[in-house]
Nucleic acid binder design. Structure first.
Lengths: 208, 208, 208, 208
DNA sequence: GATGAATGAGGGTTCATTCAT
DNA sequence: GATGAATGAACCCTCATTCAT
């Protein structure tokens, strides 16, 4: 499905508001006002509020799979360097798309949202899982990674650390003096990324 | 602040609905109906919807600090056994209170909820952080734990892994055949706990 | 009907709030809070909100008739001096009771308030009218006052001028630099009183 | 600001109900029912209950200034005839707009209504005052009117007499056998008007 | 294709009053 | 006699959506 310029303008506003105020906390009036469009446009373009969220997910989740393959098959790097690269890339992706992730995390885990189709999100999760699984298994066969690892839970550790940090940003802001978006981005791409890399490498290479 | 029997009944319903439908997604009428009370009771007892959430947080966050001290000072266990115990306890606590955590995670990270007082939650986070910090530093001084650790990010790794798993439960349900609350609880207290223990221990004891 | 100390305390608060916020604009909660009593006391003591207003009217309108007789029969003063005295007294009375008058003026002229019994107010109006009528007729027989006067409309002129000034106080505040209660009282008892005296005397003594 | 047909229909109902039941005593439901519109229309058209009152004031106070100029500059009439004309016109205007005046008198003098913008009303009052002031001063210079007059209080005397009569209509109904709207109008335009004309002329021409 | 007008439903809150104690 | 707890009804307002144009 293609989106025209106006639809994209709306979706950009929607993403911002949904991530800040939540799906139920955002009204179509706010969206219409902030996007400077008529309120009827929303229903007209997307059908309903729910459908609009689905469109947003689809719009944001579309172009993810491509990047990863490249990294994983890069033969110049060894397995430790490659996991560093993967984590770096995952965090960059999550940071860039943190808004849509927040929306999805919340709505996806709610019983009430059974009407919303999260196929795009789930598909992407499956792909990421498959890629990581394949990568770690190769590392295990190459004798670099420990065999005693619950592969399915590696991604929750990477992503979970990142998002838990993000959702408690106010709390960590004091601890690490993060006071604006720039410092947040910097902390994320340096300190936080390093911590996660360190953690995952320790897990993957630990003997016991 | 003390809560009487009726207030607790309401808060129990509120916790369930808020965690399933979100704060904005839950109406006072739903709460009143499910708790079998008059809708005016909500305002009467708590003042407002926002205050009701604060009361819920206060009610649930009240009795946490006590448990941890005991574990941390248990001299019979060595540092590796103690970190296992701590993680086990943290996960049990989070699992038990997963509903209120979900609510708080979402609302705490929303700009719109600046009116709500999350002091209880933040206080508890601070305490948990202080205890973990103290524990790890002791382990470092004892020469058991590596000195190259970002202590503030250890908790996000523990809690983040757990919650990311939880919020994507539908996804992992297929992977690990989790189909009801019992199997979820079992998986959490065994496989997931073990993974997190393994990860954190690897991180803490890793040389490099 | 007698009122005990607590009832009087309530009625004092009620008079203030009703005159500032109106009957419908004042809630029993506000009254209870300001009078520092339990909210149930209001219904308990007066039966209902409407009955409470009736009690207030009764309480305030009780002791009016006595003062006037004295002035009217004061033989030491001539008819021009006596009308001055009467107007002075009327304005003092109205100023002192301006709050209850405002309430009554509004509610008495409302169709919806047919439930409320304004007997006390009407009785007092009748008496005042009878006294003024008698006084002017005596003045006419004495040849001091003109015979071409609509006696029933003299009181509206006196009271109306006063209340119109009062109800548009904000407007006149600029014109006459009235900025607090003291300056209001001073203006009322001097300039405004003089204007009304001058007007009524001109009317009563005008030949044509 | 222009009002469409439907808005005017609503405002007509609003004026009637507000003047009979008061601002706080009238619910949007009553208005919606009587105007035969959906209750949401009120907020849709005017924004809020308060704004609706402002719109009503604006709607009613819009076209006043024009009439007066004509009368005041009518050179065919002498100063006594002209003050008669002015009073006649003022009373006609007030009678015609008695409802909105009642609403404004009450709400304008209430502390609670500080949110409502009475600019239109105040502006009109200022204009009327300026015109009367100018007219009387001209009469004084022409040697027709006494110089010993508090000009700012002449309008309260004219308007006050009228409104005090109106607000105590129930009382005067007995005295002057006024039992329907026709007899009220007749009394107002004849007897009451004459009384006020007589009073003001006596005041303006009185020597002392 | 796009939109202003309009609406039924429901939102959170406050109301005056009652009743058991 | 006095009061805290409780309630049904109503409050104003906003919601997502529809429909005629």
């Amino acid at each position: 499905m293609e989106f025209n310029e106006k639809q994209i303008r709306i979706l950009t506003v929607v993403e911002k508001l949904f991530s800040e105020l939540g799906f139920d906390g955002t009204s179509l009036r706010q969206i219409a006002k902030e996007a400077d469009i008529n309120i009827a446009m929303v229903s007209y373009y997307f059908g309903s509020k729910e459908k609009m969220l689905e469109s947003l997910i689809q719009y944001r989740m579309g172009d993810f799979r491509l990047q990863m393959d490249a990294v994983m098959k890069n033969d110049e790097l060894d397995y430790l360097q490659r996991i560093d690269k993967i984590i770096e890339m995952l965090i960059k992706r999550m940071y860039k798309n943190r808004r849509i992730y927040k929306i999805v995390h919340f709505e996806y885990s709610s019983k009430s949202r059974s009407k919303i189709d999260f196929k795009c999100y789930v598909d992407q999760k499956k792909e990421t899982y498959a890629l990581i699984k394949n990568f770690i298994e190769n590392g295990q066969e190459a004798g670099v990674y420990s065999k005693n690892i619950n592969i399915g839970l590696v991604i929750p550790t990477i992503l979970g650390t990142f998002f838990h940090f993000l959702y408690n940003q106010q709390f960590f802001a004091e601890l690490y003096t993060i006071d604006d978006e720039d410092s947040l981005k910097k902390f994320t791409t340096t300190t936080l990324t390093q911590h996660i890399q360190q953690t995952i490498k320790a897990l993957l290479t630990n003997e016991k």
